[in-house]
């Protein structure tokens, strides 16, 4: 029988069938002599059993037709726009967890696949933010001092009733807005906000959205982040370099007000 010191690491190896057979007896003896380690091992075994049980049902389900067809080559080829968006669900789950977005994201009926328009919208919104939020004097075409005109003008251009959200409670004041291209031929309104420290966020609103799509989230490596939604007839993104939770809060407030404005 081999003699060596065992450690927590060996609990995992034993559990995963990676402990050499000749060490097994010595390991069992070690476990027997260490109640704390024994409890840990028992707990891991129980958790694994629960996990296996929770996932066991999937194995017995009939294979969905679309997956069979994918293998047998009977499925019509999917166009890039129809690419699945399972990973957005993963990202949205992160938002649910981080931002407490559960209410309205879950409220849209869960996250599924959607058109490619979602990340396109976010990318355009981020690109616009990077360019214009950095401009000190020429960030906007129409300043907040002319708010009524700004709202009427942008509403007419994008074809949506745009009411600039009041984000004072979140510490942001409207700087103004501008008109931008969106999608292939569409238009978007960009509203720029600034807080007391000069931190800027922008709202990007467009009517260029043909599909009802679900709330989700996109992140760039180091740049600003966008929180965005698409629905039939409108899409909007809130972009900024705020800490994620703060951005989520601001976005939530902005989105609620935009939606109320559009349907008013």
């Amino acid at each position: 029988m081999t003699r060596r010191d065992f450690s927590e690491r060996d609990i995992h190896m034993a559990l995963d069938g990676e402990l050499p057979g000749e060490e097994r007896m010595a390991y069992d003896a070690w476990l027997e002599a260490n109640p704390e380690m024994r409890a840990k091992s028992a707990r891991y075994i129980a958790d694994r059993a629960a996990l296996r049980a929770a996932l066991a049902g999937v194995m017995d389900e009939p294979v969905p037709a679309r997956l069979r067809q994918a293998v047998l080559g009977e499925a019509p080829a999917r166009t890039p726009a129809w690419r699945s968006r399972w990973w957005l669900s993963a990202a949205a789950a992160a938002v649910l967890i981080v931002g407490g977005f559960a209410g309205y994201v879950a409220g849209t009926g869960g996250i599924g696949r959607e058109e490619g328009a979602d990340d396109q919208l976010a990318e355009q919104a981020i690109a616009a933010h990077v360019i214009y939020a950095a401009e000190k004097r020429h960030a906007v075409e129409v300043a907040a001092s002319d708010k009524d005109h700004l709202q009427t003008w942008l509403s007419n251009r994008i074809g949506l009733k745009l009411v600039a959200p009041d984000l004072a409670a979140e510490g942001f004041e409207l700087v103004g807005g501008r008109l931008l291209p969106a999608g292939e031929r569409g238009k978007a309104a960009m509203l720029l906000y600034e807080d007391a420290k000069g931190e800027r966020i922008s709202l990007f609103v467009t009517a260029e959205s043909s599909e009802a799509a679900k709330g989700t989230y996109a992140a760039e490596a180091d740049g600003p982040e966008a929180v965005y939604w698409l629905d039939k007839g409108y899409g909007c993104a809130v972009v900024g370099s705020l800490p994620r939770e703060r951005l989520s809060e601001v976005a939530k407030s902005a989105y609620g007000q935009l939606l109320a404005g559009i349907s008013s």
Binding site: L67, A70, W86, W87, S89, A90, A93, I111, R113
Partner: peptide, 15 residues
């Protein structure tokens, strides 16, 4: 086990 949403999980399998 990777994705909680069942449809999304099947999308991943299909991909």
């Amino acid at each position: 086990s990777l994705l909680r949403d069942r449809d999304s999980a099947d999308d991943l399998v299909q991909d």
